[in-house]
Computed example of a mutant assay.
Amino acid sequence: MKSAFAFLPLSLFVLTACIFPEPSETMIASQSNTSPSYRQGFDDGCHSGRQAAGSLFDQFRKDQQRFNFDPEYAQGWSDAFRQCESREEAVNRQMRSAAAINAINSSRENRFDRILEGIDYSGLEGFGQ
C-alpha cells in the first residue's frame, strides 16, 4: 500500500504536465499573432533551452546568421530559451524530488523490517484481544 503512495507525486506531476501544452506549442501555433520569424526563433530557442537544462530528447538549434540580423527571430529564440529551460529544470527537479521521496519511503520500510528481524513475537498474537 505504501509503495502505491510513493508513486503518487510522480504520477500527478506527469498527468499535470500532459494537460498543459508546452510554451512552444502555443506560441508557435500558426493562429498566434506572432510573425513566422518569431515562431521559428521560438521553436529553435525552446529546443535549445530544454537541451541546455538536460533534456536528452532535444538538440541545440540556433540559426546564428538569422539571430544576428533578424530581430524577430532573435527575440523569439531568447524568449523561448529562457521559458523552456526553466520549465525543463522544473520538470527535472520534480522528478528528482519524487525519486528522493520514493527512496526515503522504501528505506523506511526496509529499516523497520531489519529492526524486527530475529525478534520472536509469536507470544503476542493474542495480546490486545
Rank of each mutant, 00 (worst) to 15 (best):
L10V: 04
I19V: 06
I119K: 01
D113Q: 11
R93P: 02
N92G: 11
A90D: 12
E72I: 04
M95D: 03
F5R: 07
S106T: 10
F7Q: 07
S107W: 04
S107T: 09
Q94F: 12
D58F: 12
D43W: 10
L124T: 08
Q65P: 03
I104D: 01
T26W: 05
W77G: 07
S48P: 10
A52L: 10
L124Q: 07
T34G: 10
A6L: 11
S24H: 07
Y121F: 09
C84T: 01
S48Y: 04
W77K: 07
R108I: 13
F13R: 07
F20K: 12
E72F: 10
Q51I: 04
N92E: 02
G123N: 08
M95N: 08
N102E: 07
E22I: 01
R82V: 15
I104V: 12
P21G: 02
Q83S: 15
T26Y: 06
T26R: 13
L116D: 05
G118P: 02
K62N: 14
L124C: 07
E85S: 15
Q83M: 14
I101R: 08
P9F: 06
C84L: 01
M95H: 08
G49Q: 10
S32K: 08
E72L: 14
K62S: 11
S30P: 00
S55K: 05
R96W: 07
A103R: 12
M95G: 04
N68Q: 15
S107F: 05
Q83V: 13
S48A: 11
A80V: 00
R114H: 02
Q51H: 14
S97Q: 09
S122E: 09
R66Y: 04
D70Y: 02
A53F: 11
C84H: 04
S3W: 03
S32Q: 13
G118N: 09
G126N: 12
N105V: 01
A53Y: 10
G128I: 00
F13S: 09
A98W: 00
S107E: 05
W77C: 10
F60D: 03
S24T: 11
S30V: 06
S106Q: 14
N92A: 08
T34A: 15
D58N: 15
F13P: 05
F20Y: 13
F20G: 06
Q64I: 14
S30W: 04
F13A: 09
A99N: 13
E125Y: 08
C84A: 01
D58R: 15
Q65H: 09
R61S: 06
R96E: 07
T16K: 13
Q40R: 12
D120N: 06
R108V: 12
Q83K: 14
L56W: 11
D70K: 03
I115S: 01
E25G: 08
L12T: 04
Q40D: 09
N102I: 03
A52D: 05
I104S: 05
W77Q: 05
S107R: 08
I104M: 05
N105T: 01
S24P: 03
M27E: 12
G128T: 00
D63H: 05
D120A: 00
R66K: 15
G49P: 13
F67Y: 15
A98Q: 00
